[in-house]
Design a protein around this nucleic acid. Structure first.
Lengths: 266, 266
DNA sequence: GAGATATGTGAGTAGTTGAGTGACAAAGAG
DNA sequence: CTCTTTGTCACTCAACTACTCACATATCTC
């Protein structure tokens, strides 16, 4: 990768981790030298010299930079390991605190209403979808039907949970379009029925979109996710729909599609 | 803790984790009910109803909320576990990427100059200071003198590293003002010389400030940290100075102070 | 189905924050 | 003692965010 791009990427990552532009640029510049003055940093990073001081001060309070109070002042970036560790810990402690705090919040009046028959929920983001998939597999069920497309949607954790479910007597049926995944699962989830499938309906008319996951639990809960490659950014976004209830419209349709689709494809 | 405060705290934590005010408020409100409409959320959170839609959309792309595309739309917050997990993973992947990216950045011209005799560096933030302390203990040395004040600066990890150092033949001397810490260390770091100390100079004239850590490595590297309780926020901030080199001014002074101080105190 | 109410979108304003610039006093260098 | 460097402050401009309103559409009530 281009050196300039790499630096730009580091700067963007630091900003995503909560640093301001000047702070990020100053830190990256300082990481490239053993230590330096505000002038040095300004020259390397193109941050106005007079603002380097503010940026460094913030970095110092975040534990990413050390300051030598000489004249001129000298600045030193902590090692890459120390820096990433510090940041990781900071966010880890925040998420931990968040979990505690959220647990302590009392529910508001449940506003009646739980006629949960035809609800279809949309969710997006691969982590959230993976998390929900695993939750559905883990929670008590008697029958699981899973169809996966992309290889990377089969994580180790997913395999473990599938295996656990199969071992405790749940009927597990897994379909895949990929030979690699097929063989992996056949080996790692021995108690499941694994089959290959060439379901045409896994791909839409759009080449950039494909069904990534499809999970049917006890014929009454369904989760389908699709990945769409954004032509602009080149990034892949995963979206999913999630329906519950035997008579849920989505569930009914999918159940039917699978009954026919699985036959023709296998 | 007060319910209102708890919620406020959750909102602030979410903002620190990158959410906007409306997003944080909407999420907390939504967490309190199984599911609800924009109106419900607006009433609970005091976010203007018309802005709830935007906020929820963002939350959905972050994997924190599911949307039911009915009319009116219904929104549902994922479970606390799912939410914190999603956020934690997001930041973990960012710090991981950052480490990789920073590793790939080439150093700039080292701008000569390495007359490193009297440098004294300032750093702040408990995690950064703890990290540096451990690094100094771990890196090869023949003699370690550590004086700790507060109990919470003695982490398990620190004890392990001290113990390791003592076991590989490093002369480890540990002083503390606390009886609890004294006994803990005596037991957990058997190969070290642990002693109690009532060093007066551990406390400044200011009651709110105290020396938390003091580490002298091979008589030539010193790290001293102090904790200061901010009267305004009530939070404790840890600051440290760090000097290297046998003839370093700071190191010389501290060596002297310890030679006299340790005698009188023990 | 007609009027009243609720829902969702978009446009627009105000207030805050951050990026970028220059004035200037103090400290150093020659 | 003069000229340069260094550090602080005060300021502008642009971007973003919080907040409001207008309006079209949808839903409900009678």
């Amino acid at each position: 990768m281009d050196e300039r791009t790499t630096q730009q990427q580091a700067i963007e990552l630091l900003q995503q981790l909560g640093l301001k532009e000047y702070e990020a640029k100053s830190f990256v510049a300082l990481s490239r030298i053993p230590h330096g003055s505000a002038k040095d940093i300004s020259e390397i990073s193109a941050v106005p010299r007079t603002r380097v001081y503010d940026a460094i001060r913030v970095l110092e309070t975040k534990g990413l930079v050390e300051i030598q109070h000489t004249s001129p002042q000298q600045f030193h970036a902590v090692s890459i390991e120390e820096a990433t560790d510090t940041l990781r810990r900071e966010y880890e402690s925040r998420t931990d605190k968040l979990r505690e705090t959220l647990s302590g919040i009392e529910p508001a009046t449940p506003t009646e209403d739980s006629r949960v028959t035809h609800e279809v929920w949309s969710l997006s983001g691969a982590p959230a979808i993976a998390s929900r998939t695993q939750q559905l597999i883990t929670e008590g069920a008697t029958e699981l039907i899973l169809v996966v497309g992309r290889r990377d949607s089969v994580t180790d954790e997913l395999v473990v949970r599938l295996s656990d479910a199969a071992d405790r007597g749940v009927s597990v049926v897994i379909g895949t379009t990929s030979t690699t995944v097929y063989e992996q699962l056949r080996e790692q989830v021995p108690n499941a029925a694994v089959f290959r499938s060439t379901l045409e309906w896994l791909h839409g008319e759009d080449e950039d979109t494909e069904i990534t996951r499809l999970l049917l639990v006890d014929k009454k809960t369904i989760l389908i996710s699709s990945s769409h490659v954004d032509v602009a950014t080149g990034e892949s976004r995963e979206q999913a729909v999630f329906g519950r209830g035997f008579n849920n419209g989505l569930v009914v349709i999918i159940r039917r599609l699978m009954a026919t689709g699985l036959r023709t494809g296998s």
